[in-house]
């Protein structure tokens, strides 16, 4: 199987490591966001009709 060079910038090995790094970074950020109270702020906003968001106010 030959991959097109324009779509693959990384070797499979380094790409896998990058994927793992991004996955881990995502998990860390999710944890930090929860710890910092972000989900509570999202919940507070998302449970009320956001008039600005839907173009009313």
């Amino acid at each position: 199987m030959v991959q097109k060079s324009s779509t693959v910038l990384l070797t499979k090995f380094s790409r896998s490591r990058l994927s793992f790094a991004l996955l881990a970074a995502g998990l860390v950020m999710v944890a930090l966001g929860i710890w910092g109270g972000e989900t509570a702020r999202i919940l507070e906003k998302a449970t009320q009709v956001c008039l600005q968001c839907i173009g009313i106010g």
Binding site: L22, G26, V30, L32, G33, I42
Partner: peptide
């Protein structure tokens, strides 16, 4: 961070 982390994941 939570939003960005979710999209990173």
């Amino acid at each position: 961070l939570f939003v960005i982390g979710t999209l990173f994941f």
